[in-house]
Design a protein around this nucleic acid. Structure first.
Lengths: 131, 131
DNA sequence: CCTTAATGATTACGCCTGTAATCGTGACGG
DNA sequence: CCGTCACGATTACAGGCGTAATCATTAAGG
């Protein structure tokens, strides 16, 4: 199979089902399809073919590398989890909060999504960030 | 807060195109399809029929009310923006940060998504939240 | 050798989404 | 009255997504 010619920067968007697969491989790279299935099929109620389809789509999107290992492949993320998380976070921020992170935090606080513990943790974080 | 017997509060998921329509109506409720189009079609490159389809889908999802006004309808949100934002935020939080808001803030900070200004604003926010 | 089991590739398929054209009908100007 | 126009309703349709069955190949075991 050939790798897409030029496209490799953002790649195409990763869907939610695909994301579940990525999480497994971010945790433990270089797994076979069967191993990914072991980690996911029970939880998500998927069958092995489903996992294989998702792996194939992720490879074709440039999100995974498939390294031949005998007659099967070992799959490994090509994009960092941090980059993905960053992208998704920014999308949410832009779409719902006009890109203003402070608005997000304010909303979380108001909607009680933030426990006292969370608040303390964030406070500590900020202290670290601005000495 | 527990929801009643059969699920109806989350309704079906609102897509991104639909969300754009919701934003317009959250800002100014009781608009006609043509008025929503005025606010959106140029920006998004949509045609009036497209807007009408989205409006119809949102009505059938229970996200909008269509109030008859002569031979047309005035559309009004049935779900609060805050509820939608809350849902989306929580989904992101759960999916990417194990539900830990502090992790989100930490990530934003590390990835430089937070400007010094943002940080100051959040700090001020926290001060208000914990007197 | 020949069968079998594992594995990737190919194909399938129904639903959702984005985007729209077409249809039927009632209102309004002439 | 009659033609045209403005609406909503209905229908369309391609592409993406979730989920999977089937096909082809090959390694391995008897």
């Amino acid at each position: 199979m050939v790798v897409s010619p030029s496209d490799d920067s953002p790649g195409e968007r990763i869907t939610e089902a695909e994301h579940a697969v990525m999480e497994v491989l971010w945790e433990r790279p270089r797994l076979t399809a069967a191993e990914v299935c072991e980690a996911l099929c029970a939880v998500r109620g998927w069958s092995l073919p489903t996992v294989k389809t998702l792996l194939a789509r992720l490879v074709s999107k440039g999100a995974l590398a498939a390294e031949p290992d005998g007659r099967r492949y070992l799959y490994t993320p090509l994009i960092a989890r941090a980059a993905y998380v960053e992208g998704e976070s920014r999308r949410l921020l832009d779409r719902l909060f006009g890109g203003r992170a402070a608005s997000l935090v304010a909303h979380l606080a108001e909607s009680e999504a933030l426990s006292a513990e969370d608040l303390a943790e964030i406070e500590a974080l900020l202290k670290e960030l601005r000495p």
